[in-house]
Structure formats: C-alpha cells, structure tokens
C-alpha cells in the first residue's frame, strides 16, 4: 500500500529547490546581455561565453588544471594501487596506522594541508610552484584512489588470485592479468572521483599558485574579486556540464556514488 504523503512531497520539493535553485539561477543569468549579473536576465546573449575565451587566463588555467589533475591522478594511481592492494590483502604491523595516514588528507582541513605544503615544498625546499601544485593535488587525490580501489579489491575473491598462482602464473602476471581486469571499474571510478576532487580544489591550490601558475578555480576567484560581469556564471555552466558528464559516467560504470558510501 502506498499512501500519498503530501507533507513529505512538499518537503522533498523544497530540498530540491534549495539544492538546484542556485544552479538554475546561475545558468539563467549566464545568458545576461548586460555587464552586471542580474536575475532575471534582461535578454539573451552568448557574449559572456565568448568572453571566457577572449579573457586571458581562463583557457590557460583550465589547461593547467587539467594537466595537474591528470598527472596527479596518474601519480596517485601509481602510489595508490599498490597501497590499496597491500591494505586489502595483507595483514602486517602498523597496518591501521598506515591506513590512517593514507586517509588523513580527508580529515585534515585543506587550508592546514595547503599551508604546510607551501611552507615546506615551496619555502623550505624551494621546489618550483608547478611541482608543488602537482604534489599537493596528488596528496589530496590519494585517499580517494586508495579508498575506492581497496573497496573494489576487497570484494574480489582472493582465491581467484591463488587459482592463477596455482595454474603457473607469477605474482606480477597474476596482478596484471587477473586482478587488474577485475577491478577496472573500481579504478575508473577512483580516477573520476579523484579528478573531480582535484579539479574543483581551491584550498590547496590557493597556496601553490602564483604568477604564471594558477588553476581554473583560483583564476575564477581572482576574477570575481575584480569584475561583476556574468563571465563567471558562464564558466560555471560549462563546468557543471563537464561535471555532469563525469557523474553520468560514474553512474553508468558503477551505479553511482552509493558505491562509494556503502562501506
């Protein structure tokens, strides 16, 4: 029996409005022909979309953001896959400590992490800004990579690996031919989630950017400090589309983010 529950329906509607309302408003205002953000807009124009490509900085920082996210992702995978494997397959002394260390970037406020990284990587060790940014992003992606891949590994029967060993495959070959193909979707999800995390990051990046090196979110931040035109709304719309596409893929690959929150 299903009762129609008016109050509950109304409540859900309010939550949706609350969540989606701002997105809707931004989307609509991005088509404003005037020079100031207004709601409702006074017409329809794509000039601010054009402006994204004309104004220096957005495209360049977008490229940097993409490069840093992708490279960082790769580094996080190279570090994270073996770590996830060890954490899910072996019992050893200090395992829970290691677990805590790998997950700590999620627990420590980004500002603190960012500041510390800047202090040491940039100030003390004098690393180039670009490298610092890359390291910072690798660090924030690592917990997501490890978490998602470890959960994918722990649902994969260890006996299957042992079967490969008993059939004559070495450990390395077993990993590449048996383990990896079976956690593909886990890895893909990890990469997408980590990418979003890194691409949208502000609190780490803000310490690792400077003249010539900046990420898109930081560039946007700088822009809104100086201008009030709807360019930011237009960029936001494009980013929402990009994020939406990624989410769509995650959804298709593994039934959504519930995969991530289940355990």
């Amino acid at each position: 029996m299903r009762e129609k529950h008016f109050g509950l329906g109304l409540f859900s509607l309010l939550v949706f409005i609350f969540l989606l309302g701002p997105l809707l408003i931004i989307s609509v205002t991005s088509f404003e022909p005037g020079t100031v953000l207004k709601f409702p807009p006074e017409g329809f124009s794509l000039r601010w979309y054009e402006n994204i490509f004309k104004t220096g900085g957005f495209i360049r920082t977008f490229q940097i953001s993409i490069i840093v996210s992708l490279l960082g992702n790769l580094l996080a995978l190279i570090l994270g896959i073996p770590a996830a494997y060890a954490l899910s397959r072996y019992d050893f002394k200090g395992k829970s400590l290691l677990n805590a260390i790998f997950l700590s970037p999620v627990l420590i406020p980004g500002i603190v992490l960012g500041f510390t990284l800047m202090k040491y990587l940039i100030v003390v060790y004098q690393l180039p800004m670009y490298l610092g940014l890359l390291i910072g992003h690798t660090i924030i992606m690592l917990p997501f990579i490890i978490r998602v891949i470890a959960s994918s590994l722990s649902s994969f029967d260890f006996a299957v690996e042992e079967a490969a060993l008993s059939l004559g495959a070495g450990r390395v070959r077993t990993f590449f031919q048996v383990v990896l193909p079976n956690i593909r979707s886990g890895i893909l999800a990890a990469v997408l989630i980590a990418f979003l995390e890194s691409f949208n990051n502000v609190d780490i990046s803000v310490f690792m950017t400077g003249p010539g090196v900046s990420t898109l979110p930081i560039q946007m931040l700088t822009y809104v400090e100086n201008y009030f035109d709807p360019t930011i709304a237009a960029i936001s719309v494009l980013l929402m589309v990009l994020t939406g596409l990624l989410m769509f893929f995650i959804e298709r690959i593994m039934g959504g983010l519930t995969y991530f929150t289940k355990r």
Binding site: E162, L165, S166, G168, N182
Partner: peptide
C-alpha cells in the same frame, strides 16, 4: 613456489576468473 609446483587446486568457491 606455488606457481612452479604443477599442482591443480579446486577451490571451495570455485575461484573462476570472472573476466
């Protein structure tokens, strides 16, 4: 080592390669 023994092992869970 296991992979050099040439023994066949049949597991309780079958442990077939899912892929």
């Amino acid at each position: 080592p296991v992979n050099k023994r040439n023994f066949g092992f049949v597991f309780q869970s079958y442990a077939l390669f899912p892929h």
